[in-house]
Structures are given as C-alpha cells and as structure tokens.
Amino acid sequence: MKTLAITASALALAASGAFAQELNIYNWGNYTNPKLIEKFEAETGIKVTITDYDSNDTALAKVKAGGHGFDIVVPSASYVPIWIGEGLLAETRPDQMENAKNLDPVWIDVDWDPGRHYTVPWQWGTTGVVVNTKYYDGDIDTSAIFLDPPDELKGKINVVPEMGDVMGLAIMYHGGMPCDDDRELLRKVRDTLVEAKQHWLGMDYGNIEKFAKEDMWAGVNWNGSTFRMRLANENIQYGYPKEGYVVWMDSVAVLKDAQNMEEAKTFQNFIMEPENAALISEFARYANGILGSDEFMPDEMKTAREILIPEELKDKGVFIPTCAPETQALYTRIWTDLQK
C-alpha cells in the first residue's frame, strides 16, 4: 500500500514534468538493477540517468578529459587511490551518513579508502576460473585451467581481457604477488601466457550467452557473471585458483565536479540500506558489503559456491593494489606481446 502511494505520487510528479532533481550515474554495463533505480526514483523523486562503461581505464580517461556531466562513478578498489590522488572525487563522508551503521566492519577500514571518507561499497567479488563440467571433470580450483589447460578444454577457453586481473592470476600462478616487478618472474609469466594463448578461443567480455550455449567451455571469469551462467546452464562451475585468485570491490564515489552533489549523496546513503543493497546483488549476483542485506536476497544466493568461498580457499584471495606507473608500463608491454 505504501509503495503504491509512493509510486502514485512519483507518477504525479513525473506527469507534471516536475523531475526537478536529476542524478547522472556512470557505471559498468549490465551492472545496475533497474528495480533499484525505480525504487530510488519513487522514493526521492530524483530522475536517474545511467551511462555504461566497460573498463576502469575508460571511465578514468573520460572523466579526466572533462565535460562529462556525471555525478557518480563506480571504480574498482585498485583505482580509487588514483581517482582520489588525481583530485577527481568529492569527500562526501559516507561514514557519517545515516545508513553508515549498516556497513560491514570488514569493509570500512580498507586500504584504498580508510574509514570510508569517499566511497560506499557497491559490490565485491572474485576473479577466478569458469569450467563447464560436462567437458572436464578434473580439479577446477586452479589457474592451470587457462594457463596450462587440460586437453579436453583446449580451443574452447575464453579469457576476459582485463589486464590487471589476468596478470595478477598469472603472477600468483608463478608464486609472485600482483604488482610484482621482478623481471625473472615476469619473463616466466609472459612465456606461460604466450604459450597458453594458442589454446584459447577468445579474449572477450560479455560471454554469459556463449557459455550458456556451450560455444565456450572454460576460462577466466568473475564469480557473479559465472553465477548468471550457471543459472542458465547447470554444468557450469566456478573455481577459486589455489595458487591465488583476485578479490575486488567496486565502490560508489561522487565526482568533485558533480552538478547534483546533494542527489549524489542521497544515492550513496540510499544504497547502504540493506533492502536496497540486496537489490544490487540480486541483479548482478555479487555480494555487497552491507550487513543485514542477506535476508532480502533470493534463496539461491545464500548457498551459491560463487558467493560463499570454500573455507580452505578463503586465504588465497588477494586484493590487487594500485601498481606503480613503471610496473603498469611493464605489464602493458607483456599484454601487447601476448596479443600481437
């Protein structure tokens, strides 16, 4: 009944053309639940426009170039210090907002934004491997799936072209840590990647369909995206490489030159509400870092292997820090070599 009243008043507002307030969100593609936006618009009367990007670098380059008109951006952890360092974010103090009490303490004092002075957790997840178990029934908790692939999977492997994640997985496969710049280690990493690539089918994004229809059988992928694949094809499983896998979190930040500063802050506070955070997760299938959101989540998320990391593999997850520019340049060279 209450929702009805709110919707009705929102409709009346819309009909009179009185969406005086606006909010422009710049977020990853296929990542924002339309229901979340509808709810936000109904409750606040703020009209939301969403624009997509496909990588952290695209977002950073576009905002740095200026004249973008966005209020909110959702960078990954390793990029947040760059955004802050370049003076692009407004210090909105989400930690002092009304709903900050719902923040999971684990996600408050994080390296990239200690005490949460700038950002609010959006979703967090892992980058690991995906395998269609109809074609391969061996151990899937290893990066060997794509770096030294079993014969059954050769030629059907897809690796997401996310430089930081793939380099991180390959470096940990050889016993290093992300952002390592040891030349001997990197030589091994490059050789392994180049050698492995001949068994790959593609390096592409947006493959939920292709895995579901079994055009691709294995590869590097994110947990939530794999979850969505499994819901479409039950043979698909997610593996956590025991050599080390990547943990990441994307956080909602407000741009310093935002034209709708107050609306943006309202949004930051809004998504710290457990019910709303659950909506975020329900769509993209990642965990969110807000306490109490579990009870609003669909049942299949409470038992999914993609969300609940197996106990024995919990300590193998590694957060990728912001690499030094020189190290990043080395990685780019290896990455280009890999795709030449």
């Binding site: 990588s55 670098d57 695209t58 380059a61 072209p161 430089m163 930081g164 690539k197 790959w200 089918l201 593609g202 390096m203 592409d204 780019t332 990455w335 280009t336 795709q339 030449k340």
Partner: peptide
C-alpha cells in the same frame, strides 16, 4: 579479441 588489430592497439594506449 585474442589478436589485436591496429585500432585495438591504439585504444589500449589510451586505456589500460
């Protein structure tokens, strides 16, 4: 996307 084309190589320099 396994092998870069010249256009993709240029894009890589402006991105990652």
């Amino acid at each position: 996307g396994k092998n870069l084309m010249f256009g993709n190589l240029i894009e890589l320099q402006f991105g990652a």
